[in-house]
Amino acid sequence: MSEPANPHDPRAAQRLAWTRAALGDATAGLERASTDAGFRSYWRTQGTAPSRIVMDSPPDREDVRPWLRARDLLEAGGVRVPQVLARDVDAGFLLLEDLGGPTMAQVIDDANADAHIDSAITQLLTLQAMSLPNDTVLFGEALLQRDAGLFEDWYVRRHLGIELDCGDAERLQLAQRRLMDNALAQARVPTHRDYMPRNLMPVADGPAVLDFQDMVVGPIAYDPVSLLRDAFLSWPEARVDAWLRRYHARAIEAGLPVPDIATFLRDADWLGVQRHLKILGIFARLHHRDGKPRYLADAPRFIAYLDAVVPRYRELDPLQEVLEHTIKPAITRLSA
């Protein structure tokens, strides 16, 4: 259904007027295509052929310039990204090609997963081989410290409603420090930071990559584990292991700086733990601060991942103790 004119929503009226001017069609309409975890929204044009997508990025909430800068860098590096057909940066509107409806997350299944993952790895290898400007943000100590704080501040303290005692706080800090040191020791390459099936569109010359505005220079195992230990999809560990080995072999062929396979698998495991703790914090923040509760429904997936991986590594025993003795009992109380 097209978006009706709404005199009580100036942004909606501005969005529709800009779209009609960009298309040169005074009768064009808009319908919501999707939203994301930020403040951007996406709208599909109605009554025109071919259809287009309007990105609405309110300039007082989410500057569109980082998105455009990353898009241009990715395109120059050979990565398939949406084409920009018209733009008004100051107003926060972009007219984009319409890549179609379903994301990879909506079409991937047991039968076709190998093909989709292989195409995603192909695109990822292109991304990781890019050259980025010297001023590209480094996924280093500062970002890692910020990520580490999200779990305790938003998931533990705000969502579960508990304050860690001195012993648990020290154990969590020690585990986070070890996770950060592992990430900092890895070879650094261009890193999407959210390279997962929800952000990939299965087009013929793709997959096309979306939601790339937070691209940094970061640890080489980060994007592979984002893809294969997704925040919204779970696969059997044996299959994930096979895909990680497939990525590793292809990365060696591509000349990327991956370590030996045993080290790489450990690095992927540890980055998966770091990432899942961070996302638990982000999802809790989306719920409590931004009024977006649906993301927390996936929290049990993260806990299950931590249960599968953390016990493998004695160095992460401090985290295991906090999870078993404090976090899980609090989850049980909250869900009772």
Rank of each mutant, 00 (worst) to 15 (best):
A183Q: 04
L96D: 10
E170M: 13
Q176G: 01
G206T: 07
L174D: 12
L124A: 05
G101P: 00
D110N: 14
L172A: 03
S119G: 11
T103F: 04
V217D: 08
F139D: 00
H192T: 08
E163C: 00
M130N: 13
D114I: 01
L96K: 05
D211I: 05
L132T: 08
M180I: 13
R171K: 13
Q176E: 12
D147F: 01
E163D: 15
Y195V: 01
G140N: 09
H116S: 09
A113M: 07
L99P: 09
R171A: 12
A175W: 05
V107K: 00
R157T: 15
R158M: 08
A204S: 14
Q145Y: 02
P197H: 09
F93Y: 12
L164K: 07
L95P: 04
D214H: 02
P197N: 09
Q176K: 12
L125P: 08
A148E: 07
Y195H: 04
L138C: 03
L200V: 05
L96H: 11
R157V: 03
W154Y: 12
V137W: 00
Q186N: 04
Y155S: 01
G149W: 02
P190L: 07
L150D: 10
T103Y: 11
R178L: 13
M104I: 05
D147L: 02
G100M: 12
L138M: 13
R178D: 13
L172G: 03
I162C: 01
P133I: 13
R178G: 04
L138N: 09
R158F: 00
P202Q: 02
G161E: 03
T191Q: 07
N134R: 14
E152A: 13
D205N: 15
I117H: 12
L174H: 06
H159N: 11
V216M: 13
D135K: 10
R158A: 13
D90W: 00
P190F: 09
P190H: 09
Q106N: 09
D153H: 14
F212D: 02
G100S: 06
V189A: 09
D168G: 10
V156C: 07
D110E: 15
P190K: 10
V156M: 04
L200D: 04
Y155K: 01
A204I: 11
S119M: 12
A185C: 09
F93T: 04
L174A: 14
Y155F: 15
L172K: 03
V137A: 14
D90M: 02
L132V: 15
S119C: 06
F93C: 06
L179E: 05
G140Q: 06
P190S: 05
A129M: 01
E163R: 10
E152P: 02
M215C: 14
H159M: 11
M180F: 01
C166K: 15
D98Y: 04
A183T: 01
M180H: 08
V209M: 04
E141A: 13
G206W: 07
Q176M: 10
A120N: 08
V209K: 03
D211A: 05
N112F: 03
V107G: 02
L143R: 15
Q173E: 14
L200Q: 06
R177Y: 04
